[in-house]
Design a protein around this nucleic acid. Structure first.
Lengths: 225, 225, 225, 225
DNA sequence: AATGAATGAGAGTTCATTCAT
DNA sequence: CATGAATGAACTCTCATTCAT
């Protein structure tokens, strides 16, 4: 999957280490987050009820309130979870070279038609982002997420500039443009069903941005269309 | 205002003819659409109730149901209205020259911090777009809207290519990239409060895309950063 | 049709004489009664709305209120209409001889499976009768209707007794029994779909009651099973 | 009470065992059925609201929806309850001899003026029966109830025929006639306030039907007027 | 006579939340 | 930890009725 995770039903993966009380609590938490994710995907934020979440959980509605006082608390924790799922993947990289890293970053946004999990995940993110307008607490968490993403690209760009691979542009500005453009294309693709919109944006960025970023005397490598 | 209208409380502008029966009906319709717009902006789609709309209306709640059988019907009509408000402005242009027209198109997305109406309008659009995932009827209407936007840029590009102003790129592809990138930046700006994100994206497009589009032997005009 | 009319869409039959203002008013009244009848049959009393009636009428809902202040007023008038429709037929008879008249009276209750109009009419009567419990004004009107029916049989019986055809029973008592038994069977048939229940009751009355009523030295005529 | 129960506020009678969980659930169910019965009697089916039922209940309106998804579900369960209340009493008898049993069966329909509970119950049954026309699910349940009643009389008659007490008539046909005639009289009495109509019908049946049924050489016993 | 627009009361239903167990 | 029962507020929608035209 791309930059912004696939998680969801893979919620309970990971540290299913021992059977301690701490783990049990953690498992319940993860199970609720997973249930929330699935319920959100199925019903949409506007129609999401505690019952919908409980239905995806194998436990009762009351138990949700035992763990989270209110629906809002639960959703706040869920935003953290979402952001966390993504963030964990953000730093992953297979190379240290700036150009491949930049290409890799952009590539991660491309959603193929058969990747329904990632599509679903992107929808969930889009849902939450819109709620940020009316929920300051959502906003703060998602702002941090956006900034972290921008920073990730900016770091790649800064590295490339320092290494003499990229022109001397403002890494923050260009990073933001790349990130928000990819998110724009992704939102278009997943909300309105514009097949391959992410792929086309990736290509456009490769052609118009990345190619331009390269210092003149270098060869244009394969990563750039 | 930019490409995607300011409408809402300006609902009754236009044919302020006389007090005929036709106007009365039309006025009520427009009043409801305006009330819906204001209620949507204030409460957000997820929390929007018929009461909220009635509160922005100077008539009773039941009257909403008299004119629209269900909440869904009303919102469907509202999507049409939104799309219509925008579409009416889309074709407007002050010049026929491709480059200024392209610059003008992109400029229209820039939202200044003091333009709260346009910010609010952009939020409303973003809200509706997310609902498209779960509401096929919303999706269809918004798909048409998106395609109309892309087509508008594509036409400008095609004209420019034919006039020898732009390089021979695929107008559709590039047009889509420009549109979805601007929308992505706008969504970032209005949902997460990223001040000037639209301005920065406009600049990035001018620098990376428009400049690249120009045929080599032309001077780079003022429109481009 | 039997004792209790078929009316309904035949509402406007009768005095469609001239085009005077009085007739116009009468026509509207009859049209509303007819519409009410059809709406009642289609929706049932419990679900009957003014809109349902207006839908069967070719006029607006408001017009109903122009002619009848309230729904209750309209329904009260409708009960009168129903009772009237039936009453008009009650006195009709083809013969003066007590036995055939009694047989004729009972026969009129028999509803054949293909007589959907009469079935529908009987349902309407049953609906109204139940409302009598909670609506004193309905009750009064229907009590009079019942008594008139009982009286009709009682008269036949009294005539027969006087003529020496029937035994000296209490005409009122036996008349009531015959009438309420036939109505019971009819209600069974039309509400629970008990095919031919009216026919079977008619036969049972012929066998057990009418045969018994005949004075001993007479031959049992064909009317009696 | 007669054949068709008195129930209602006597809902919780019977197993007032302990405070087990089972009882609690059962009690609530019974309490709702009882409240529904009382509300139905007071307001009539056509005007019966969930609020009316809740008012007769000592719990909240929402609890009704907790136990029954919809008003229709609740009423469907209520029809079952009504039919059940009656059915439980149907088989009860104090004797094995056909003639007394038949007399006993018919006697049970007689409602004295002071038996307001039974009168009320009969009204409720009549209300539900009319709804059967428009509600197939009501119809099925009530059809079974009617058939069970007819069968009960038919069984008595068949026993009597086999025992040589009654003439060789068709038990089903005569049973149906007796049952529907009694119900017809009862409906007359309780909806239109025809005092003693059930008693008069009982007498008429004794005189015209039961007396006729007896084989010729027997003495007419006291049971038959 | 006839209508469309408008309203207020109240209908059935949903839902987040609480509480006793 | 876990639940079923219970609640009150609020929601969408309906309907008889009124009123201006």
């Amino acid at each position: 999957m791309g930059t912004e995770g696939d998680a969801g039903n893979s919620a309970s993966e990971g540290d299913t280490g021992s059977g301690t009380a701490t783990d049990a609590a953690g498992d319940t938490h993860e199970a609720i987050m997973g249930a929330t994710y699935r319920a959100l995907c199925e019903h949409g934020y506007a129609d999401l009820t505690m019952q919908d979440i409980a239905d995806e959980f194998d436990k009762s509605r009351s138990l949700l309130h035992y763990h989270y006082d209110t629906k809002e608390d639960l959703l706040l924790a869920f935003v953290d979870q979402m952001v966390g799922w993504i963030g964990d993947r953000l730093a992953e990289t297979e190379t240290d070279e700036p150009l491949p890293r930049l290409a890799e970053y952009v590539d991660r946004f491309v959603i193929e038609p058969d990747e329904s999990d990632r599509q679903t995940f992107a929808v969930a993110i889009a849902e939450l982002r819109v709620q940020a307008v009316h929920h300051p607490q959502f906003r703060e968490k998602l702002q941090a997420h956006y900034e972290r993403n921008v920073e990730t690209v900016a770091d790649i760009l800064a590295d490339g500039i320092e290494a003499g691979v990229f022109r001397d542009v403002d890494p923050e500005r260009v990073g933001e443009a790349i990130y928000t453009a990819m998110v724009g294309a992704r939102t278009y693709q997943v909300t309105l069903g514009a097949a391959d919109a992410t792929r086309r944006m990736r290509d456009a960025i490769a052609e118009f941005v990345i190619r331009e970023l390269l210092v003149a005397d270098r060869d244009v490598p394969e990563y750039v269309g």
